[in-house]
Design a protein around this nucleic acid. Structure first.
Length: 483
DNA sequence: AAAAAAG
């Protein structure tokens, strides 16, 4: 099935094919014709399913079909997103697919100067992408007029509700004409979402492509048990010894993200942190640097757990498990997108046993757990409740290891060499690159070597029996992504 | 309890 049969105009199809896309994803196949018919939709698509194009393509089409007046152009389509990064991405998608159409669009979000935004709005745009806070700011200043909006898109609506945007959304709704077409996208269906959908949508067509709370099947998930204070060392070792081109690493706190990025730089890895306390400029730079390949390790809080679309991202590492199990699903969704293979590794210390259990309960399966030679957890370290705040996720707290020594094995885990349980998927053994025996790699000599070049040599014999693994680098993109 | 979003 190709894009041609979805009822899109030649200009849009041209832009799509110029991006190298040939085949619509399931959500696009379902959503595009329905939106073109003028119906409201409630779509349960997660990021990575191509849902952004699922609404931008038909929206562009509908807007371009209607004649535009020569003079003042009112905003006819409004897209709301929870984060600034997502807003920027959606706006980019609109630019890309609308480039052969005489439509204008712009994006407004906080953290950047408001005046250039006012300038663009005054100039007149057909499509506006926005985060709620800055949009209301504009509304109060009367620098935006929403009284002619015909199409409303709420992207990642569940996330917006989680972030407490419901009041802002209500205020925005009050500024819109009541006759309009509404598109609501949400990865999950909570009661709140249902309530919002009831209020917002008229006879919506339900579109469900990705099942709730299931990780993409192409993502290989594994857990490495390791002591908290050795996580950083293990991470650097993994990046170097497995020759990862790029990796997205999640921490629980902003402070932890900063600290880890600094430490990785000291290990000789180009790294940057991205979180909500960084200036918008720093956030944009970090993301751009990562997308360009200048930055090898991007350390992020859950700001990046949803909605970020980084092309060809093969590895995600949970440096710390998320407090909320659902966020695990969103985090690992950053890899293995649109049917490509990906790998999600969680570095788990004893303090996180409970978080791991919660995640496994949500996934309804046990994650394969391994111990890498040289990184065996110290059995004398007892679980401590996870503190939130400054000391929460770091490399402090040494010293307690020496104190008490109740020899208790950690439960429910297998070492890399232990026999697998019947029926369990066979796992690769620990990397050959790791030192054999019990000798722990010193942080000095385990320091990752810089990659020789951007082209990959496959990383060593550790891949030998990893026959499920795809080559790390692939270039063809047959499906249309975009958040 | 942390994170995001308005300044």
């Amino acid at each position: 099935m190709s894009f041609d049969s979805l009822g899109l105009s030649a200009e849009i199809l041209r832009a799509v094919s110029e991006q190298g896309y040939t085949e619509p994803t399931p959500v696009q196949r379902q959503a595009i014709p329905v939106v073109l018919e003028g119906k409201d939709i409630l779509a349960g698509a997660q990021t990575g399913t191509g849902k952004t194009a699922g609404f931008t393509l038909p929206l562009l089409q509908l807007l371009s079909q209607q004649a535009q007046g020569k003079g003042h152009r009112p905003i006819r389509a409004l897209v709301l997103t929870p984060t600034r990064e997502l807003a920027a991405q959606v706006a980019e998608s609109i630019e890309t697919y609308g480039k052969h159409l005489p439509l204008r669009s712009t994006v407004v979000f906080g953290g950047v100067k408001i005046n250039p935004q006012i300038e663009k709005l005054r100039h007149g745009v057909d499509i506006l992408v926005a985060t709620p806070g800055r949009l209301l700011d504009h509304a109060q200043q009367k620098t935006v007029d929403l009284s002619h909006v015909e199409f409303l898109v709420l992207d990642e609506a569940d996330r917006m509700l989680d972030m407490g945007f419901i009041h802002d959304i209500r205020k925005v709704l009050a500024l819109l004409p009541s006759a309009r077409q509404n598109l609501l996208f949400s990865a999950t269906y909570s009661q709140e979402i249902k309530t919002l959908a009831d209020k917002l949508l008229n006879a919506p067509v339900l579109i469900e492509v990705a099942r709730r709370n299931t990780a993409a099947e192409t993502v290989e998930q594994r857990v490495y048990r390791v002591d908290r204070e050795r996580k950083r060392e293990l991470l650097s070792f993994l990046v170097g010894s497995r020759n990862w081109r790029q990796v997205l690493v999640f921490t629980r706190t902003k402070h932890g993200a900063n600290r880890l990025a600094q430490q990785l730089e000291k290990d000789g890895l180009s790294a940057a942190a991205i979180h909500g306390n960084k200036s918008q400029g720093a956030r944009t730079r970090a993301l751009a640097g990562f997308k360009q390949g200048d930055i090898r390790v991007l350390v992020a809080t859950d700001i990046a757990a949803r909605g970020l679309d980084i092309d060809q991202l093969p590895h995600v590492v949970n440096f710390e498990l998320p407090n909320v199990p659902e966020d695990y699903v969103h985090r690992i969704g950053r890899t293995g997108r649109a049917g490509r293979e990906g790998e999600a590794i969680s570095l788990v210390c004893v303090d996180e046993n409970r978080l791991l259990r919660d995640i496994e309960r949500l996934l309804k399966r046990e994650l394969p757990s391994e111990i890498l030679p040289g990184y065996e957890p110290d059995p004398s370290i007892k679980p401590e409740p996870i503190k939130n705040g400054r000391n929460g996720g770091g490399d402090r707290g040494r010293g307690r290891a020496q104190q008490q020594a109740p020899r208790r094995r950690n439960t429910g885990q297998k070492t890399a060499t232990a026999p697998e349980q019947p029926g369990a998927r066979r796992k690769r053994s620990a990397p050959a690159a790791a030192k054999s025996g019990n000798e722990a790699p010193r942080s000095q000599n385990s320091r990752p070597q810089r990659p020789a070049a951007k082209g990959q040599q496959q990383s060593a014999p550790s891949e030998a029996n990893g026959n499920r693994r795809a080559p790390q680098r692939r270039r063809q993109r047959a499906t249309l992504l975009g958040g």
